[in-house]
Structure formats: C-alpha cells, structure tokens
Simulated assay, not measured.
Amino acid sequence: MSIRLSAPADVGQALRGRRVELVVIGGSAGGVDALFQLLPGIPADYRATVVCILHVPAGRDSRLAELFDLRAALPVREARDKEPLEPGVIYFAGSGYHLSIERDRCFSLSCEPPVQFARPAIDVLMESSADAYGPRLAGILLSGANHDGADGMCRIRECGGLTVVQDPGEAQASTMPIEAIRRCAPDLVLPLSGIRTLLPMLRNL
C-alpha cells in the first residue's frame, strides 16, 4: 500500500474552522517512546483535554501518569470512574479496565471482555469519545503491533472529528497505523515531529 504523508497545506485544510475540545491519543508497542516526544510539547496554557491510552498488561499497575507528570507542562493523572473531564489536563487510562467517555463527558470504567486482545482498548475509548464529542474531537493513533484503534478512528471520522495517524515508516511497530490508514483514510498522516507541531494547534481553534 502506497502511503502519502500530509503536507503543510493538508494540515491547514484539516484545521480550517475546526474547534477541538478533546484529543485522544492511542498507541501500543512504541507508544511510550512516541509520547515522550509529544506530550512535553503541549504548552501550559492549553485548554483542550488530552486522554492517552496505551496497552497496559493486566494485573500490573500503570505508572504512566506519574511518569509523564514529571515531564509535561500540564497536570497529568490517571482517569477515574465517573470523573468529569477537565480542560487543560492530560489523563491516562489505567490497567485492567476499559476506559470510555459518557455523553455527559465523564469517564466510565468497565470490565467487559478485551477488544483486539486488549483491555483497556483504544477502540472502546475512541468510539465513545466520538459519540460524546463529535466534530470537536481529534484522534491520534501511534505505533502499535495489532489492529486496535482502526475501528475507533473510523468512528471518529464518521462523527466529523479529526483523524491523525503516525507515519508507519517511522513507527516502531507499523501494523496499527497501517491498518488505520487502510480502513479509514485519515485526515492527516504525519511523522512524530509533525504531530508534535500539530498538538498545540488543537485548542478550540
């Protein structure tokens, strides 16, 4: 499959007239390293909400929120059941539970079966976020070794949200971004450097 990276003109077109209240970032193998490059670039005055989800092994507490709280300009915490989403905060999905967002824009945790062999699953979070936020959602899919996230990105696109996929050519594991590109033809395909530049622009434009 031939993959064309997005040009600066494509970014401008994708952002024109768009207001983003929530950014959901998903990844698996290679996702932690990618977030190390992305999250420190979000400025302290950022007013959108950011929710990150990585495949975390069951039975092991996630320390991702603590890890990134030391590196990000925004406060970082693990998402809790029934907690309302706040602007200007970075949330991480914990381990062992699916994380979704209700239409009242609160988090919900569940023990439903794994999706694409994962719990938490990117698809669950992205699909529920699309239903809650519609065109005011941006979904970003990073490196990963399975197909989780492709259905979620398709749902975001159906609901009018912005879809962004990491360049598979630079991903540590290309399966996840390639499947999303094949399935949903995302608005933008960018290297991590391009996504890092894009993120500060997704702030209630």
Rank of each mutant, 00 (worst) to 15 (best):
G96Y: 02
I140L: 13
Q172A: 14
I42L: 14
L35E: 01
D33R: 14
L192Y: 01
S100C: 09
R19Y: 12
A173I: 00
A79Y: 02
E83A: 10
R60L: 15
L125K: 11
L74G: 04
L74E: 04
R119V: 06
L162G: 08
D131G: 11
P40V: 13
L198A: 07
L54K: 07
Q166K: 02
A185K: 14
S6F: 03
S193A: 15
A132M: 09
L35V: 08
C106E: 10
D151T: 14
P191D: 13
L188K: 05
I140K: 05
C106R: 15
G144L: 07
L205G: 15
M1K: 14
G26K: 10
R71V: 12
E21H: 14
L205E: 09
R183K: 13
S129Q: 10
E127L: 09
R183S: 02
A34Q: 06
F68S: 09
L85R: 08
C111N: 13
A9H: 08
D187Y: 00
P8A: 11
P186M: 02
V89Q: 03
R155I: 01
Y133E: 03
L190G: 06
L99T: 06
D187L: 00
R18M: 10
P177G: 05
A173R: 08
L190A: 07
Q13G: 09
A173L: 00
D61W: 05
M201V: 04
S128R: 09
S100V: 11
S95G: 13
A185S: 14
V164G: 11
A29R: 12
S193Q: 12
L5A: 09
R60W: 13
A48Y: 04
E179A: 15
L202E: 02
P40D: 12
E170G: 04
E86V: 11
A7C: 08
L85N: 05
L205T: 00
Y97V: 10
E66D: 14
A121C: 11
P177H: 05
F92H: 04
A121Y: 02
Y133R: 02
E179G: 00
M153A: 03
I195Y: 01
G27S: 04
D123N: 13
L205A: 01
V164E: 06
P191W: 01
G152E: 12
I90A: 01
A145P: 07
D45F: 12
P177D: 05
F107V: 07
H55Y: 11
P114V: 05
Y133L: 07
I156C: 04
G161E: 03
L70C: 00
V11S: 06
S100D: 08
I42H: 09
C154W: 10
N146W: 07
A185G: 08
Q37D: 15
I90Y: 01
R77L: 11
L70H: 06
F92C: 03
A180V: 09
L109Y: 03
A48I: 10
E127M: 14
T49K: 02
A138G: 08
Y91W: 08
S95I: 11
D123L: 11
G134S: 09
G134T: 08
R157D: 11
L142I: 10
V189H: 04
L5S: 10
T163W: 02
L67N: 05
K82F: 12
E66R: 13
S95C: 12
S129M: 10
E127I: 13
R80A: 14
H55E: 07
Q172C: 03
S6K: 03
A138W: 07
E83C: 07
